[in-house]
Nucleic acid binder design. Structure first.
Length: 696
DNA sequence: TCTCACACCTTTGAAGTGG
DNA sequence: CCACTTCAAAGGTGTGAGA
C-alpha cells in the first residue's frame, strides 16, 4: 500500500535556498509523500517550524484490513524464514537476537488500566511511569544505539468525560517528531545487557518552539512510545544500520496539561518519589486536605451522610507505595532494579506457564511487594506466541479506558531494517513499512549524494534545541538521526507483528506515519565531532570547547535562587549543626561550584564492574518467555558495505571511544567524510544566524 | 484547557569533619 | 587520605488560582 500523494498537502520548503537545488525534491515527491514541515528562518535568524498538516485520512476500515492482511502475510513469511534463515554478510559470531523486556511494566499496566495520562508542560516533564527496558540477546561485543520516540497512537483528540476518555474529534496537526537517544549510546551489547536501560530523562512538552529537544506532544492526544535498538558502533552509521523497533502496548498514554483522572493523579502521587509531598502520609498539602476531608467525613457521618468513595489508597497500598518509591529514580535504581532482577530471576526460571490476564488486575491491589513481583513475573511469563496469535486474531481494539478489555501484552518486536531491497520490492513489506512510518525509499535519500537539503531540514531541528550542540555535531546527528527515524523499511520479525500494536502506532484511521516529521532531537544529547554522544550538560561544554565560543549560561538552568525558595534551610534539615563545624557561607562555596552540577551520564562501565550493574552478568539471559524476540533478516546493503570497509563493526575497545584516532578511523569512509564536510559548510550559515540571535 | 507560582520533595555533589 | 556527614542548589512533582 502506498499513500496517494496529495499536492499541497504539506508545505515543503527548502530550508536554505542556496541548497534547494541540491535537493531532489521532484524525485522525492514522486515516490512518497513529504515528511518535513516547512521550516524557515525568521527575521531574527531563529528557526520557525510550522506545524505540519496531515495527510487526508484513509479509510480506517481499509487500513485495518490491509494491516491485518499484511501482518498475516508477514507472519507467514517470517515463519518460512525461520525454516531457512537468510544468509547475510553478518558472520555467525556477530549475530544477535535482541529481546527487550519492559522493566516497569507493572507500573505501566497499573496506569494503563485507567488510561495513562502524561502531563506535558512548556518547561518539559518527565514520563512517569518511566520507560525502563532490559535488553538481552544482544551481541556482547557489538555496539548498539538505543533510541526512543513517541508517536501518535491514533488520529483522534480525546476528552475526559464522565470519568472516561472519549474521542472528541479529529486530532490536531502533529508536532515535529523527535527521537531520544539514550545518553549511553553507543555501548556494547554487554554493557546494555548488564543494566536496565532507563529513559527517564526523556521530557515531554507541548511547546512547539521548544529548544531543548524535548519531545513535543499535543495535549489530549494519545501516544505510543517506541523503543529502538540500532546495531551501530557509531552514531554516523545509524542510517545504515539494522535496527529494531519494540512497541509495548501498555505504554500508551494520553498527553494532558492537567490531570483529568483523579485515579491517575493518586497513582502518580503514590508511586513517584518526587510527588511524595502529596502523599497522605507526607506533610504536604494533601495531608491537610485529607485532614479536612476526614473532618468533613466525620461531620457527614455524624450527620448521617456518607461519601461515595472511600479513599483510594489503603494502608496496605501505602506499604506498596513505599516499595515502589525507590523504583523510580536513578540514584537508587541500580539497587532497586538489582533486587527486582533477583526477584525476577528467582521466579522467571520457574514460571513458564501462561497465566490468565486477570493476574494483572490482581496484583494492582496487592500491598505486598513480593506478591506484586511474583504476580508480575507470572504475567511476564506469558507465551509470546500466544500473544501474537491473540494480536492477529483478536481484532483491533481501540478502547482505552478503565474498562479497557484489551490488557494485551504485545511484546512482539517490530523489526525495522534498512534493507534497501525491501524498499523497492516486496509489496507486503512496503505495505507494512508504510504503515509504520518508514518510507520505502528513504534509503535512497540517504545515499543520494545530493540529498543534503533534507538533512539540513533536520539539522534545523537539531540546532534549534541546541545552544548545546556544536554545529558539526548537531549536523552530523541531525541528518543521521533523522535518517534513522525515517529510515528503512519495516519488516517483521519472525514472530510477526501484533496487529493492534501496528494499528496503534500507525493510526487505525489510516494515518500513515510517513507524515510524521521525524527529527532526531535527542533532548539535549549531542554528538561529539567524533561520534560520541553526551548528555547536554556535557555537550554544552563540548560545544563551547570545540567551537571556542563564549560560554553562556545554559538556558535550562536557573540563573539564581528562585524567589519561591525558602531562603532559610528548613529547620528539620539543620536541627543539629555541630558547633564545632565551621559555618559555611554560600559565598565561600559558590565560586567553586562548576557551571553544571550534573553528574556525567557515564558510559556504562559495567563491564568488569559488577557493582555498577543492575544485575550480574549471569542474569542477562534469564528473561521471561514473553519478552520479545525477533530475527534479523538482513542488514542494509549500505551497512554491510560500511562494515566491510575496514571500520570495526565490533568495536569493543571502548577506551578509544571518542578519541581522535578512533574518530578518524571511523570516518575513514570517504563518503562519510564528504557528507560531513558538505554539511559542515552548509551549517555554518545556521550557526551564524544562531549566534546573532543569541547575542541580540 | 492551559499557565504559572508555589510548597514539598528527591537528587546531587562539594565542603566539612574526624579518625 | 578516606569515609562519612552536612547542606544547599538543582530540579521533579502535583496543586490551585487565574486567565
Amino acid at each position: 500500500m502506498r499513500d496517494p500523494l496529495v499536492p499541497g498537502d504539506m508545505a515543503f520548503q527548502p530550508f536554505l535556498t542556496n541548497t534547494a537545488s541540491d535537493f531532489t525534491l521532484d524525485a522525492m515527491l514522486a515516490r512518497q509523500p513529504p515528511f518535513f514541515p516547512a521550516i524557515a528562518l525568521t527575521s531574527h535568524g531563529s528557526l520557525h517550524l510550522p506545524v505540519a498538516q496531515r495527510h487526508p485520512m484513509l479509510d480506517p476500515v481499509n487500513a485495518e484490513t490491509i494491516l491485518r492482511k499484511a501482518s498475516l502475510e508477514q507472519h507467514n513469511a517470517t515463519q518460512s524464514a525461520k525454516l531457512s534463515p537468510p544468509k547475510t554478510l553478518e558472520t555467525e559470531a556477530t549475530e544477535d537476537d535482541p529481546k527487550v523486556h519492559l522493566e516497569t511494566r507493572h507500573l505501566w499496566t497499573q496506569f494503563h488500566k485507567f488510561g495513562t495520562e502524561m502531563v506535558i508542560t512548556k518547561s518539559g516533564r518527565r514520563m512517569f511511569p518511566p520507560f525502563k527496558a532490559r535488553c538481552t540477546g544482544l551481541n556482547q561485543r557489538a555496539k548498539y544505539i538505543l533510541l526512543m520516540d513517541i508517536v501518535a497512537a491514533d488520529d483522534f483528540r480525546y476528552k475526559f468525560h464522565n470519568s472516561r476518555w472519549m474521542v472528541s474529534g479529529k486530532a490536531d496537526p502533529e508536532m515535529p517528531k523527535r527521537m531520544y537517544i539514550h545518553p549511553d549510546s553507543p555501548a556494547s551489547g554487554e554493557q546494555w545487557m548488564s543494566k536496565v536501560v532507563n529513559f527517564h530523562k526523556l521530557k515531554l512538552t507541548n511547546n512547539i518552539s521548544d529548544k531543548h529537544g524535548f519531545t513535543i506532544l499535543n495535549s489530549m492526544h494519545k501516544y505510543q512510545p517506541r523503543f529502538h535498538v540500532v546495531r551501530a558502533n557509531d552514531i554516523l552509521k545509524l542510517p545504515y544500520s539494522t535496527f529494531r523497533t519494540y512497541v509495548f502496548s501498555e505504554t500508551e498514554f494520553i498527553a494532558v496539561t492537567a490531570y483529568q483522572n483523579d485515579k491517575i493523579t493518586q497513582m502518580k502521587i503514590d508511586n513517584n518519589p518526587f510527588a511524595k509531598g502529596f502523599r497522605d502520609t507526607g506533610n504536604g498539602r494533601r495531608e491537610k486536605k485529607k485532614q479536612l476531608g476526614i473532618n468533613i467525613q466525620k461531620f457527614s457521618e455524624t450527620s448521617g451522610d456518607s461519601l461515595d468513595e472511600a479513599p483510594l489508597k489503603s494502608a496496605g497500598n501505602a506499604k506498596s507505595i513505599e516499595g515502589c518509591q525507590s523504583d523510580s529514580e536513578s540514584g537508587q535504581e541500580s539497587k532497586h532494579w538489582n533486587n527486582v532482577g533477583q526477584d525476577l530471576r528467582k521466579i522467571s526460571t520457574t514460571t513458564k506457564e501462561l497465566k490468565p490476564e486477570p493476574n494483572i488486575t490482581t496484583f494492582h491491589d496487592k500491598a505486598d511487594r513480593a506478591s506484586t513481583d511474583s504476580l508480575r513475573t507470572e504475567t511476564d511469563s506469558k507465551d509470546p506466541k500466544q500473544d501474537h496469535i491473540n494480536a492477529i486474531t483478536g481484532g483491533m481494539t481501540r478502547c482505552f479506558g478503565a474498562e479497557d478489555p484489551r490488557a494485551t501484552e504485545h511484546f512482539q518486536p517490530l523489526t525495522v531494517e534498512t534493507d534497501q531491497s525491501a524498499h523497492i520490492t516486496g509489496l507486503g513489506r512496503n505495505k507494512f513499512s508504510h504503515c509504520y512510518s518508514y518510507p520505502p525509499d528513504w534509503t535512497r535519500y540517504i545515499l543520494n549524494p545530493l540529498g543534503v537539503t533534507h538533512r539540513l531540514l533536520h539539522n534545523a531541528q537539531v540546532n534549534m534545541q541546541g545552544e548545546t550542540l556544536s554545529s558539526v555535531a548537531a549536523t552530523a546527528m541531525g541528518h543521521m538521526l533523522m535518517a534513522v527515524s525515517s529510515d528503512g523499511v519495516c519488516t517483521m520479525g519472525t514472530a510477526g507483528i501484533p496487529v493492534s500494536s501496528v494499528q496503534r502506532v500507525s493510526g487505525t484511521s489510516g494515518l500513515p506515519l510517513n507524515f510524521q516529521q521525524h527529527a532526531m532531537a535527542s533532548q539535549g544529547l549531542a554528538v561529539s565531532p567524533f561520534g560520541a554522544i553526551f548528555p547536554y550538560p556535557y555537550s554544552y561544554l563540548a560545544a563551547t570547547a570545540a567551537l571556542s565560543t563564549t560560554a553562556s549560561t545554559p538556558v535550562h538552568r536557573r540563573p539564581a535562587t528562585p524567589v519561591h525558595r525558602r531562603p532559610v534551610t528548613p529547620a528539620h534539615r539543620r536541627p543539629a549543626t555541630p558547633a564545632h563545624r565551621r559555618p559555611v557561607t554560600p559565598v565561600h562555596r559558590r565560586p567553586v561550584r562548576p557551571p553544571t552540577r550534573f553528574r556525567p551520564y557515564s558510559i556504562p562501565n559495567s563491564v568488569g564492574l559488577p557493582d555498577n550493574c543492575s544485575t550480574p552478568p549471569t542474569s542477562i539471559h534469564l528473561m521471561t518467555d514473553r519478552d520479545v524476540n525477533c530475527h534479523t533478516i538482513a542488514n542494509s546493503p549500505i551497512d554491510i558495505g560500511l562494515q566491510s570497509n575496514g571500520a570495526a563493526e565490533v568495536d569493543s575497545d571502548s577506551s578509544l571511544q571518542g578519541s581522535g584516532a578512533l574518530a578518524a578511523k571511523r570516518l575513514s569512509n570517504k563518503d562519510c567524510m564528504d557528507q560531513l564536510q558538505c554539511i559542515q559548510q552548509l551549517v555554518r550559515g545556521i550557526d551564524s544566524y544562531q549566534d546573532r540571535d543569541s547575542y541580540s
